[in-house]
Design a protein around this nucleic acid. Sequence first.
DNA 1: GTCTATACTCTGATAGAC
DNA 2: GTCTATCAGAGTATAGAC
Lengths: 206, 206
Amino acid sequence: MQDTPMPLPRSRIQTRNREAILEAALEVFSSQGFRGATLEQIAEAAGLSKPNLLYYFPSKEVVHSTLLAGLLDTWLDPLREMDAAGDPVEEILGYVRRKLDLSRDFPRESRLFANEILQGAPRMRAVIEGELKALVEEKAAVLRRWMEDGRIARVEPVHLIFSIWALTQHYADFDMQVRAVLGEGHDPFAEAGAFLTTLYARLLRP
Amino acid sequence: MQDTPMPLPRSRIQTRNREAILEAALEVFSSQGFRGATLEQIAEAAGLSKPNLLYYFPSKEVVHSTLLAGLLDTWLDPLREMDAAGDPVEEILGYVRRKLDLSRDFPRESRLFANEILQGAPRMRAVIEGELKALVEEKAAVLRRWMEDGRIARVEPVHLIFSIWALTQHYADFDMQVRAVLGEGHDPFAEAGAFLTTLYARLLRP
DNA sequence: GTCTATACTCTGATAGAC
DNA sequence: GTCTATCAGAGTATAGAC
């Protein structure tokens, strides 16, 4: 149960404009970073004037925080779904698949997150040391039990989770490089799906 | 053989100051991104005044380019060393090890590079589509031959290289997150070394 | 709710004394 | 070579008319 504050009642036009601003801000922040982005760019992309943008959000900082606030849950949900009662290899491969789908469908969110961590997570430190760490420890315990029961091969569980993050997010965050190296006529995410399935199947085979 | 231009003759003090500036700039650009960094911060960290910094470099842009220019070779050297005549698994594990050592010893360079790619590589597009792509294709051919000869397991060679980049650079670029999740009393790079050795040994076993 | 005009700050870069 | 002073432009944010 989250204790998010009750959203204030808003008119149709307010809802629409706030959403346009957040959509535009995601585009700009994820590709330019916080300081690289300007209110001008965001307002332009949202189809508003700069002062009008600031009518909906009190500051640039608040626009950015609003985006980040929604991010972590989306990012962790695929891991939450990994079920201790399921088949180990299937559960892990399912997690890899869901995480890769996130990279494919929400690359801007992935880059927004990457920008934040790269810079030392000035605005997310607390949630990373709290919520994220707690979830990883919970799921690492599940993985460890599967290993002790001989249902998957033994590897360091936390680094196994890191590896899934690294490999799936790479295809969103370094998309430009991936496409440049592959050249035309490739579907990076389809190929990544096949590669990662093979990789984790071989790694985890007891 | 590189055709780098002959460096201009410089006094001792010029050499020292230029190096101090580049060192300071690496620190600041890698943690704040290009637009996030200010000449003020860089000058301060280098122990110079802002105009004095601009006596050594004509602009912020040139300081940044100078850093990037030296980067790609360092980054690609470990892959260049992978020898078609060596033992396949040993060669690949050696590459993983060298790349992980780079992440450990030059995390700021890794983050500078990550910042650049994240933002669509506005200043490195050419070298990525040229030099980097060419080297990857050359080494992918080596990997493919090893697979055809049955000396390592069959996987998509380019994605195998991507996986090594993703997994090793993750420990530099997401260092903050890695340490936050692991908590005290861990040596992330030592643990990563063990994990990655296991991972690639199992993946590649014919 | 939205716009024009503008205040104010920060920052990259230059001028010119020493 | 280095410093103080300063400019010009960009960028965040506010005032106030409509």
